[in-house]
């Protein structure tokens, strides 16, 4: 019974949240872009290039945050068999993968003028790249199993194993990085963040979060409707 009662309640909740999250997203993006590109001053060391940070850092943050959402949802779906949880996990994966890819892309465009290289095998970039692979594997597993309930469980197991591995991977990559001591130009975390950078950065953080919530709700609603349609069609076939 709760299987059918829950989606209706979720739909009502989602409909209540969506206008707000969409509104916050639109305003925060508009204000954040204005702040990031126009109002904030160039950095005294990095010059105008610092502006890339205002989209790079939120993307990188979201890439990990979304994976945590995905893993927690997977955990809830495995332990309490909550049907909405695996829908949430499935819906968040492509969004998280997109953030991860954007973090790598903007990072490399930031790295070229700053450190003279598009790609450096430093610990952070390497871990983010591996995180992208984890997202790919997760999405590929969902796609390859036809039975949705089985796919949900298998993907949930993978997501939980993945989240246990994230700190191990991080640790191993850092270890690897200190051993190889690249003859590197790259020094992360050099200049401290100036007060004038906090406004655009913070606004963009809000915008990215609101964007994720909005997309997650849209995708979850679509997924729910798709399943409903499938059940209706199956019933029709059985009825005839």
């Amino acid at each position: 019974m709760h299987k059918y009662a829950n989606p209706a309640r979720f739909n009502r909740l989602a409909n209540a949240i969506l206008p707000w999250s969409f509104g916050v997203m639109a305003i925060a993006f508009a204000y954040g872009l204005y702040q990031a590109l126009v109002a904030s001053p160039p950095d005294y060391q990095q010059g105008e290039t610092v502006r890339i940070m205002y989209i790079h850092v939120p993307s990188a943050w979201m890439s990990l945050a979304v994976y945590m959402v995905l893993a927690s949802a997977s955990f809830v779906s495995l332990v309490w068999r909550h049907p909405l949880a695996d829908i949430a996990a499935k819906a968040s994966a492509p969004v998280g993968a997109t953030f991860t890819a954007l973090a790598l892309f903007t990072g490399s465009l930031w790295g070229k003028p700053m450190w003279g290289t598009y790609w450096e095998w430093d610990a952070r970039m390497t871990s983010v790249l591996i995180l992208l692979f984890l997202y790919f594997g997760y999405m590929a597993l969902w796609r390859s199993i036809d039975d949705q309930q089985k796919a949900a469980k298998a993907a949930a197991i993978l997501a939980i194993v993945g989240v246990i591995n994230v700190p191990i991977i991080k640790f191993s990559v850092e270890w690897w990085n200190t051993i190889h001591q690249p003859a590197s130009v790259m020094r992360m975390g050099g200049p401290t963040i100036d007060g004038s950078m906090l406004i655009p950065l913070f606004t963009m953080f809000i915008a990215f979060h609101a964007y994720f919530i909005t997309l997650l709700l849209w995708r979850m609603k679509a997924e729910l409707n798709e399943r409903k349609i499938q059940i209706m069609k199956e019933n029709e076939v059985l009825g005839q």
Partner: peptide, 30 residues
Amino acid sequence: GLTAMVKKGGLLIALLILPLYIPTLIFGVS
């Protein structure tokens, strides 16, 4: 085990497992 239900799981296994092999590779080589 995860790909047991999949008919041709060879490539999928690689995608799922190789990222998880990375720590072993790193410490083995180091």
